[in-house]
């Protein structure tokens, strides 16, 4: 007889997903890893995990493609199917938490793409009730910005920002997806005030970006894996809309705490409003 399944409901970005497993140790891992994001909300989606022998996370490229009505998510260390009509899916993976994070990120990226949101390779934080996103290539300073943050700043993530449309623009949510800081973000949300593309330099300065350049930078940093033209079209629409509603700038910064004064005093408007 199969062992009974136990469930941890993990709510990231206001989207509760039930993760079920018959393995008690994996359940403990789930609960520890997503502590702060566990929820008693009614799940919108369900994923059933079946574990394979433990192994490392894979450096293989991920593939996300349609298989009939289902999505097929594959990498060397996991194989998952998800049916967006029923909201249910199954995952075969080892107990590696990085594999788990990857599956969840891909699932959220698919859900968000349909809903006009996205996951962005960016740190984000709340300052004065507004969310600020800091994106850029590896080494541009995302983790540095979060390390330099004053005590009154609420860290949403140092690695993967979660963005959804809201009644008056876009909102950023905290995520448990940590980067170098190895620290989960706070589970809270705020309206997005600005997105900064980071570059380190000799002084702190904010420069405007032409809309097309902003969209190009944005698209290059959105986490999106699906080989699906309709979803890509939707994502491109979302990126254009985001640029029209949110101030997007290049932030050149010298890595000391004064850069946060620049952020705190920023009152920009979208270039393409």
């Amino acid at each position: 007889m199969a062992a009974p399944r136990k469930i941890a409901c993990v709510e990231i970005g206001g989207i509760p997903i039930a993760l079920s497993t018959s393995d008690d140790r994996f359940l403990d891992l789930l609960r520890q890893r997503y502590q702060g994001f566990l929820s008693s909300s009614r799940p919108e989606f369900e994923l059933e995990f079946d574990l394979t022998p433990t192994g490392p996370a894979s450096d293989d490229d991920v593939r996300v493609r349609r298989d009939g009505d289902e999505w097929l998510l594959e990498r060397g260390d996991f194989h998952a199917r998800w049916d967006p009509r029923t909201g249910r899916g199954s995952v075969r993976q080892n107990a590696n938490p990085y594999s788990l994070d990857s599956v969840l990120r891909i699932l959220h990226s698919l859900i968000l793409a349909q809903r006009g949101g996205f996951l962005l390779h960016a740190a984000s934080a709340i300052c004065g009730g507004r969310a600020y996103l800091f994106s850029g290539v590896s080494g541009a300073g995302k983790t540095t910005m979060t390390r330099l943050a004053p005590a009154d700043i609420t860290l949403l993530t140092d690695e993967i920002s979660y963005v959804r449309p809201s009644a008056d623009g876009y909102a950023a949510y905290g995520t448990p997806f940590a980067g170098e800081l190895a620290k989960s973000g706070e589970n809270c949300t705020a309206p997005v005030s600005a997105l900064f593309f980071l570059e380190q330099g000799p002084e702190n300065r904010v420069d405007e970006l032409p809309p097309a350049d902003a969209v190009r930078r944005l698209m290059r940093n959105i986490l999106f894996f699906a080989e699906d033209r309709r979803l890509v079209e939707k994502l491109l629409d979302t990126a254009c809309h985001f640029v029209s509603r949110v101030a997007i700038r290049r932030l050149t910064f010298y890595p000391d705490g004064k850069v946060w004064d620049q952020v705190r005093n920023f009152h920009g408007v979208p270039e393409h409003a």
């Binding site: 809309p211 079209e233 491109l236 393409h272």
Partner: peptide, 8 residues
């Protein structure tokens, strides 16, 4: 297989 949008 492509998506295209014009902006500015």
């Amino acid at each position: 297989a492509i998506a295209a949008r014009a902006l500015a």
